[in-house]
Design a protein around this nucleic acid. Structure first.
Lengths: 231, 231
DNA sequence: GTGTTGACTTGACAATAGTCATGTTGCGGC
DNA sequence: GCCGCAACATGACTATTGTCAAGTCAACAC
């Protein structure tokens, strides 16, 4: 059972934050807390789901291995994100594998608990649908990106999502290493390197894990511009 | 309200087939039936969802328009498929637009009906999650395809999904026009043409909307082989 | 029939991204 | 400190795909 500080993070997650307190307490009291080291597997593709997972700290990636051995990163989750909802409730095999990409803490809510609670209160179903929909939406956005944008544009959009400011300049630090960023954006690390150097022309400087964006709007224009204007 | 023959198709859909009869009847009695012409819009991105949609006949595509005007096809649905579940239950805007790609019949189940029924029986929530999960899964599969396979490999896999046989030879007819196939597979019509001619070397012949696969296993090997063996 | 239209194919060329090879750098272990 | 490793960068080359242009073909209205 998780500690109070851990529970507090879980309560803020999309999955739990709109549920009535008493249900959240029931779920949390049955939850299992675990720490994973970088590179450790959380579950494997084809395994049957027994729990819903909530990231409390660190980063987790979902990916698929292709028959030829290359991996396709499907999503990367951070503190407060939940995953595996739709799978856990249906006792079907995971379509993806999950791995810790940094040291991280994950809370597991056993699916039987979730199911029995759902029978009491249909509102829980809506909550689960809410987080599932968020994933659905982000996959759709990724598909659009991959189909309609060049590598450099995807990188630019990735950087924009890291900025809090609306315009002007902005400093961000890359949340995880460049190999993973490349995977997440559907390219090879070499291509990511080249995309970064291409972005120099629109005022982006990269140093290690630190990125400096001199003009957010210029970057935004780069993402949305016609291919002809990209050079 | 739909006719009996239309209801029969709806009852076989993933969304409804595992529900108790009485609930299905309630839903169907409130459903709206409509026919759409090729090219007609069913809903637009950013519109708020008011219903869940079930395809009874024909084909429907979901797509996103990018700021630059190009479109990214997200999925293509056929008879018996449902879409818009997760969105309808949450009163949020659609992340995609839907359009009829052939003359087609669609049944709309108003979301308030679904919600009220869900409060009576949480099993409905599970059914909705089931079809939502199917979409999630297919998006993940598409992402993997786009990230890890060449155009010709994606086309080969598309053809394999159309075959019923397990091995040997097989004839299939392309379900919709090649422009849409190209969009669905994330490429331009020209690239699809070239992918088809490339597949001649592994025993695939295309004539109009008719495809002839001389050896299913050879095609399967082509999809899974190392890039080095693809030429 | 004729003409028009849109789907499809093909070729030439440009742009983008992957591969392979090589080199640099930062970091943890010792 | 030094070593060794893995992440990252860069260059040269190749493969894949998009773009533009031209042409074929079938369907359909007239």
């Amino acid at each position: 059972m998780p500690h109070e500080a851990q529970k507090a993070i879980a309560r803020q997650s999309l999955l739990l934050r709109s549920l009535p307190d008493q249900h959240v307490e029931t779920l949390l009291s049955h939850a299992i807390w675990r720490q994973y080291d970088r590179g450790e597997t959380i579950f494997l593709q084809e395994e049957t789901a027994k729990a819903v997972h909530v990231v409390l700290a660190g980063w987790v990636k979902l990916f698929r291995m292709t028959p030829t051995g290359s991996e396709a990163v499907v999503s990367v989750f951070k503190r407060g994100d939940s995953f595996g909802e739709a799978v856990a409730l249906r006792n079907v095999p995971y379509p993806v594998s999950a791995e810790a990409v940094s040291t991280c803490e994950v809370m597991h809510i056993p699916s039987p608990i979730l199911i029995s609670l759902m029978k009491e209160d249909p509102e829980i179903g809506i909550s689960i649908l809410a987080s599932t929909f968020t994933h659905l939406h982000s996959l759709v956005a990724q598909l659009e990106q991959l189909k309609a944008q060049t590598g450099a544009q995807r990188v630019a959009e990735f950087l924009l999502n890291l900025c809090d400011e609306v315009d002007g300049r902005c400093d961000v630090s890359l949340p995880y290493d460049k190999m993973l960023i490349a995977g997440r954006l559907g390219m090879k690390p070499e291509s990511l390197s080249r995309a970064f150097s291409r972005l120099k022309t629109v005022g982006v400087k990269i140093d290690r894990s630190h990125a400096e964006i001199s003009d957010i709007n210029a970057l935004r224009r780069y993402v949305e511009d016609e291919p002809a204007n990209l050079r």
